[in-house]
Simulated scan of single mutants.
Amino acid sequence: MSFPAPAAGHLPQPIREFLTELALRAGIVDVDGTPLRFTPHDFRRIFSTETVNGGLPIHIAAKLLGHLDLNTTQAYVAVYPEEVIRHYRQFVDQRRTHRPSEEYREPSDTEWQDFRDHFQPAQGRTRHLRPALRDSLPA
């Protein structure tokens, strides 16, 4: 099920008027005191922001909104730096609950050296490559 946006100008005027009246009754005003006006499209943006910032994967939000391109949904979603940090920390915390605690220790000097050596140029370390690939490397 998705909720694609109606074509521009095809939304019944009574809905727009209803939203305006609700905002007036609720006393929702801008910083300068002028009444805020809402459109149904504003609620699509609010929905996408709240759901994605609340943890819904953005590709699912895109489906719900009827977007064919993920970039469209990303443009809808207001991402706040603190939200990104909070979600990242939640992800890491959740991930750590599923991983052995040994994985979160400091590496030994030998492990660091092995890691560094892995990314050094492959001079003299091509014997593990298939012959066709090994023979295509510069001498």
Score class of each variant (00 low, 15 high):
A61E: 04
T51M: 15
Y104I: 07
P138D: 03
T51V: 14
T39V: 02
L70M: 03
E50G: 12
H59C: 06
R134V: 09
D117I: 02
V52T: 06
F91N: 06
D69G: 00
S48N: 01
R134F: 12
L133K: 15
I60Y: 04
L56E: 01
R37K: 12
E103I: 11
L11Q: 14
A132E: 13
G66L: 03
P6F: 07
H10E: 15
A122Q: 13
G27D: 09
A132V: 04
T126W: 13
K63I: 08
S108C: 09
Q90D: 09
W112F: 07
E83F: 08
R25K: 14
H128P: 05
R99H: 14
K63H: 09
D93E: 09
T51N: 11
G27W: 11
P4R: 09
R130Q: 11
D42I: 01
I46Q: 12
R116E: 14
A5R: 12
R99S: 13
F91D: 06
L65Y: 01
D69I: 06
D135M: 10
S108Q: 10
P40E: 09
I58G: 01
P138A: 02
H128S: 14
E102Y: 04
L56K: 02
H67F: 04
L19K: 11
I28D: 05
I28W: 11
V92Q: 04
V79A: 04
T110D: 13
D114M: 08
R44P: 00
E106N: 08
Q13N: 08
G9S: 13
I85S: 13
V84I: 15
G9W: 12
P131F: 08
H98I: 07
F43K: 03
P12V: 14
V79W: 03
L65F: 02
E106T: 14
T20W: 11
V84F: 10
